[in-house]
């Protein structure tokens, strides 16, 4: 890894550190995420993968270090629409249907051209479940309806926290397809994995966190 904050990097970090009660959770950490690239964040349980994601996306404050977006220090107000965070808590309302949940996401984040929520649900394999309340779906189906957000929302940096959890083989292939297509279109993705098995296709750049 060279030139961490080189202008070609969509997202970069230098000396990023996060402390919890004065104990470092991770860091100091340097990384860069370029357009068309996937970075796999690896580490054991409790090594700070999710914390790193939450720091990058702005839900937690880094204690030290700087994040760069397009080579300039990251301005949260400008960055908000460009980052898309898929967390453990999927942010789905259990009483609403996948379609209604997607419409909320579109209202907040906007929508890509030439795709409708119905098409997105079809792509993630939820045809026939568009109008079922999310609480009646299986864990994997819930994950899929959250993944449909990736298709619709026009963010170029994806932060996916354990995107393969709860998914069957077909679902894993789906996530890989989504990531490959996003990267081919000039986007970038940061994906966490607890390291036991990685389902990510290709040879992603690896970022190793140790507890």
């Amino acid at each position: 890894m060279t030139a961490e904050n080189s202008p070609s990097a969509l997202l970069a970090a230098r000396d990023l550190t996060f402390l919890r009660q004065d104990e470092p959770v991770f860091g100091p950490l340097d990384f860069a995420l370029r357009a068309g690239e996937v970075v796999l964040v690896e580490g054991d349980n409790g090594s700070g993968k999710t914390t790193l994601m939450r720091v990058v996306v702005g839900l937690l404050h880094a204690d030290e270090g700087t994040l760069y977006l397009d080579g300039a220090p990251l301005d949260r107000d400008l960055a908000r629409g460009r980052l898309l965070f898929l967390a453990h808590h999927l942010g789905l309302k259990a009483d609403l249907s996948p379609l209604e949940n997607l419409r909320i996401a579109i209202g907040l984040y906007g929508c890509r051209e030439a795709i409708t929520p119905q098409q997105a649900l079809h792509t993630v394999g939820l045809q026939g479940y568009e109008h079922e309340p999310v609480r009646q779906l299986s864990a994997g189906q819930k994950k899929r309806s959250a993944l449909a957000r990736l298709l619709l929302v026009p963010a170029d940096i994806w932060l996916l926290d354990e995107p393969f959890a709860n998914l069957d083989r077909e679902g894993i292939a789906l996530v890989n397809r989504l990531i490959e297509r996003h990267v081919a279109e000039g986007g970038a993705a940061m994906v966490t994995s607890h390291g036991a098995v990685t389902f990510l296709h290709g040879e992603p750049r690896r970022l190793r966190l140790s507890a």
Binding site: R80, G81, K93, D95, L96, E100, R103, I104, I106, G107, L108, Y109, G110, C111, R112, P133, P154, D156
Partner: peptide, 25 residues
């Protein structure tokens, strides 16, 4: 790439919460 407009976002949040309230009337 157009982020959701202010009005669309407000309507989405309002609609969502009213819909949720209606589902659990």
């Amino acid at each position: 790439m157009m982020p959701g407009s202010l009005r669309a976002a407000c309507v989405a949040v309002l609609r969502r919460d009213l819909l949720l309230a209606w589902r659990r009337r």
